[in-house]
Design a protein around this nucleic acid. Structure first.
Ligand SMILES: NC(=O)c1ccc[n+]([C@@H]2O[C@H](COP(=O)([O-])OP(=O)(O)OC[C@H]3O[C@@H](n4cnc5c(N)ncnc54)[C@H](O)[C@@H]3O)[C@@H](O)[C@H]2O)c1
Ligand SMILES: NC(=O)c1ccc[n+]([C@@H]2O[C@H](COP(=O)([O-])OP(=O)(O)OC[C@H]3O[C@@H](n4cnc5c(N)ncnc54)[C@H](O)[C@@H]3O)[C@@H](O)[C@H]2O)c1
Lengths: 210, 210
DNA sequence: ATGGTGTTGTTAACAATTTAACGACTAATC
DNA sequence: GATTAGTCGTTAAATTGTTAACAACACCAT
């Protein structure tokens, strides 16, 4: 009997890495992986790996390691990756196009179900079998298609307005790429993908010692 | 006398948020901000803010708050944001273009000094006063322009090869957007911007309780 | 001046996470 | 079979990060 113990953010982050590397092992045809396999591939202590995996309900055999398929299933279930929730992209500019074409959707969890823009020269064009729709349709489409997540890649001036609309339409999660702090109720999970972080972090990490 | 105490990752993350919000206060014409101002704008306890700021060397006055200009200067110095290090983007596809056009460069730390691609129909085109150069020139350009950071946005198949080149050319930092774990020596700071994380995290956060 | 009030700098308690350790179990070997 | 070696599950310790608390101090009103 496993309690729904809350995982720390860093643990979730590691689990995501584990999944990635384990899937790679699977591609190489391996049936079992050990905590050392995972750890050394990732620069994480094997004990740390075991403890993280411990929380998932055990799937390992002493002397042999963890069964790859079972481990993948456990992590995918933890992240709810096997339920393909409908998602949409709002703002089909450079960033929106890059995200739409990214292979990140292939891991599951969400499937791209709609794209919106307000530029008449973009609306109506096709992308991977999806017609870019007018922003005017957004409320209705979210409702009828049951869209649960919205990727926001519009200019900063429109971000809050767009967020308000999708929230009212019933979206559960927002992935916000716009450098604006969205004002949203607690009930909506907002993930801010501030790329400036990466830039600043690198600048900090390579700062010459003083 | 302040020691070069190592900051935790989450502290760095918060400090970046502080900088953002303090600059906003500055735009509004304020000269002083209190830890409560910062905290309530960000949903962080004021004491936490003070403790983070404490490590920077004090800049605050009781009853008044922190001097905005001094605080900004301290954080910018911590992150080495005032030295505009030359950076380049490699792979000028959708993502490369979105990043090149992003306003994240305006905060400083790096300035976009070169763009590379290997597609003849892209090489030679202009972007914001920068000519997209052939990948063949990359080694020489990095050397002569003293480029310190490379943003990698090429297809997965080319990522490691590109990383090896820039590393040999003397780049100190790599911002890797490709879902591939780069094999790099310790001397190079690699920041993996795996967008899949955001996706998975949202899927996890909105997972229905079981 | 003087007392009141709000905010910092700093320390201490507390909580969470990471690291270490080790018994238990499994498979292989002799 | 017994023994050995390798790896897991689990507990405990150490480290780190967060929260709370409060004295010292600066400004303000009187
Ligand atoms: N997270 C980052 O650091 C990062 C990086 C790059 C871009 N961005 C942000 O992403 C956003 C988009 O960047 P981009 O380079 O793709 O810009 P872009 O101009 O190429 O794309 C914006 C798109 O949004 C559409 N749009 C504008 N208003 C709209 C509205 N009200 N409803 C629907 N669509 C609307 C436009 O027609 C355009 O197609 C910007 O806010 C930018 O700051 C962030
Ligand atoms: N981090 C994420 O989740 C995320 C999101 C979107 C895209 N991506 C990744 O970013 C990369 C680019 O995505 P995109 O949508 O911009 O693809 P894209 O095809 O639009 O752009 C790739 C560009 O790289 C150029 N290129 C190819 N080989 C090269 C080489 N050897 N040297 C220099 N340039 C080369 C191509 O000419 C093209 O212009 C992909 O690897 C993709 O997986 C990641």
């Amino acid at each position: 009997m496993v309690k729904p113990k809350r995982l720390s953010r860093s643990c979730v982050l590691r689990l995501e890495l584990y999944l990635e590397i384990i899937e790679q092992f699977q591609k190489e045809g391996r049936q079992y992986v050990t905590s050392s396999d995972i750890g050394s591939a990732l620069g994480i202590a094997p004990g740390n790996v075991r403890q993280d995996l411990f929380g998932l309900g055990s799937a390992g055999r002493p002397k042999v390691g963890y069964e790859v398929t079972r481990l993948i299933a456990l992590i995918r279930d933890l992240f709810d990756l096997d339920r393909e929730k409908p998602a949409c992209i709002i703002g089909f500019g450079n960033l929106g196009r890059a995200l739409a074409g990214s292979n990140m959707w292939s891991r599951g969890g969400y499937k791209l179900a709609a794209i919106f823009d307000n530029d008449p020269s973009i609306v109506g064009t096709d992308f991977a079998g999806l017609r870019v729709r007018s922003i005017a349709e957004i409320f209705g489409v979210i409702k009828t298609q049951g869209i649960e997540m919205a990727v926001i890649t519009v200019p900063a001036s429109a971000a809050q307005e767009v967020a308000d609309i999708v929230q009212n339409a019933g979206v559960k999660a927002i992935w916000n790429f716009v450098p604006v702090r969205l004002n949203m109720p607690e009930t909506v999970a907002v993930e801010n993908q501030s790329l400036a972080w990466g830039l600043i972090t690198l600048s900090h990490r390579t700062r010459p010692a003083q």
